[in-house]
Amino acid sequence: MAQIGTGEQRPLSPHLQVWRWHVTMLGSILHRATGFANYVGVALIVLWLFAAAMGPGRYAQYEQIAAHPITQIILFGFTFSIVYHLLNGVRHLFLDAGAGYKPAFASMTAWIVLGLSLIGAAAIWLLAGLVPGVAIGGGA
């Protein structure tokens, strides 16, 4: 808002391109991106719930759309998004408390969260029997 009215030359923060990419930066950007994705994803969950409330006919319609390969890719992305935002959210709670700021440690936890999220999303889909042709422990 500094430009408005006062005519003062206020310092600008360094712009995006002068930063070297590093994993804590990626982790932070992904946290916001996945938060945004989860916003849309929660609407899909509520739609699913509403379809169930509207009876078997509507539910079958929802399931038909959900079973489409493109929807499946979106839903797997949403699964990753949920797991990432959850795990990185816990990491952020520690950061909020002032812990885990040593650069090497912060980078390590960012990598761990990223890796665990990919493994977690894959594990959820395997365990829920959502991967075509793979059946582990029941599921759909």
Partner: peptide
Amino acid sequence: AIALIFLVPWLLIGLRTRSAAATAA
């Protein structure tokens, strides 16, 4: 956020029972 740490895993475990049939859900 702290509430969701507990609630989201519960939902994920529960949604595991999600089935093509409406009755299971």
